[in-house]
């Protein structure tokens, strides 16, 4: 294989790894913009991926000839709904009961994996849920023929890749251009001020957390579809990595997009570096996989003075203390 083919393969894999991170990190952004730290992205991804994959598994058994595009659209709805449902636990504890958001989120992470593995094992005796992964789009007509760009973005993808692109555009419009987005940001920056001009802080925070739940659930589905043919009870830390992507992207949709691509590239290198001539004989995979986390730490240090973190993120809002 020549250098060109290798870099095309790696860039194509980058896209597959980036999309789940992108969708989930945008979810995290909505929650933090409203002032709630959502550390439970990991658990919500597990939850969303489990129920949507279980749904796909059942549908594929019941209706073997079902159209894959239709099925994945339905599975996306299942993933979003189950993500939203689990996130209500965080919203209830963090917004209404003003509990510590990190502890509440940790409890949800602790809950998600055993709960879905329990259901899987009770139904089938094994923790994995199989499905036949016929959702890959090997080549988008016309666009796939464009040199370089076509090979990276329009071959070996899934529908979720384009949904991911669409969500970035949507998120950026919603956050910067709509009344809802600006109110959401104001609630995360200064809830007292927002409340005083008649914005319902609790409602906005519920909305932020539920959007993050829906997106994280979808991200979970994207993770499984991109990487395997079965769900086996975890998303190998992609939820936490998505938090890093969100911080790296400084809570801004387009920067999050770039950060997700960077993190995806590092994951792709970790899995495919042995293709690169001269590197075959080392086991460097772990170093590549370490790199996004090290980069996040460096980014956190560099941006510590001018971080764009929402000011009230992580602090419960008490109307009485306004």
């Amino acid at each position: 294989m020549g250098w060109f083919e290798i870099s095309m393969l790696i860039l194509n894999a980058m896209l597959l790894f980036s999309i789940p991170l992108l969708i989930t990190a945008l979810g995290g952004m909505f929650s933090e913009k409203s002032g709630v730290v959502n550390i439970s992205l990991e658990g919500i991804m597990v939850f969303g991926s489990f129920f949507s994959i279980l749904f796909i598994n059942i549908m594929q058994n019941q209706f073997p000839s079902i159209n894959p595009t239709l099925l994945i659209l339905m599975a996306m709805v299942v993933a979003i709904v189950s993500g939203v449902l689990l996130s209500t636990l965080l919203a209830f504890s963090a917004v209404n009961l003003k509990a510590n958001q990190v502890i509440g989120g940790t409890a949800i992470n602790l809950l998600a994996t055993p709960l879905v593995v329990f259901i899987a094992r009770t139904l089938n005796d094994v923790r994995t849920v199989q499905f036949s992964n016929n959702f890959t789009i090997s080549k988008v007509p016309l666009l796939g023929d464009i040199p370089i760009i076509g090979e990276i973005f329009f071959r070996n993808t899934t529908l979720l890749t384009y949904i991911g692109f669409f969500i970035v555009i949507l998120a950026s419009v919603v956050i910067t251009k709509t009344k809802f987005g600006l109110r959401l940001s104001s609630v995360g920056e200064h809830p007292g001020a927002a409340d005083s001009v008649g914005i319902n802080v609790y409602k906005m925070r519920w909305a932020g957390v539920m959007i993050s739940g829906g997106l994280a659930g979808l991200g979970g589905l994207a993770f499984v579809i991109a990487s395997s043919v079965s769900f086996d009870g975890n998303v190998i830390g992609y939820g936490f990595l998505a938090l890093a992507v969100m911080i790296f992207g400084q809570w801004k949709p387009w920067r999050i997009f770039m950060a997700a691509l960077f993190f995806g590239l590092m994951s792709a290198l970790a899995f495919k570096y042995s293709l690169i001539p001269g590197l075959e004989s080392f086991s460097l995979g772990y170093l590549f996989r370490m790199f996004p986390y090290v980069a996040t730490i460096i980014a956190l240090i560099l941006t510590s003075n001018k971080s764009r973190v929402p000011k009230a993120s992580g602090i419960p809002y008490d109307q009485g203390s306004r």
């Binding site: 509990a99 510590n100 509440g104 409890a107 602790l110 809950l111 055993p114 593995v117 329990f118 094992r121």
Partner: peptide
């Protein structure tokens, strides 16, 4: 896994 579920519920409950 039921045990981990129970522990998680206990932690959530004590958080709130």
């Amino acid at each position: 896994e039921i045990v981990d579920i129970i522990v998680a519920v206990i932690i959530y409950t004590s958080a709130i």
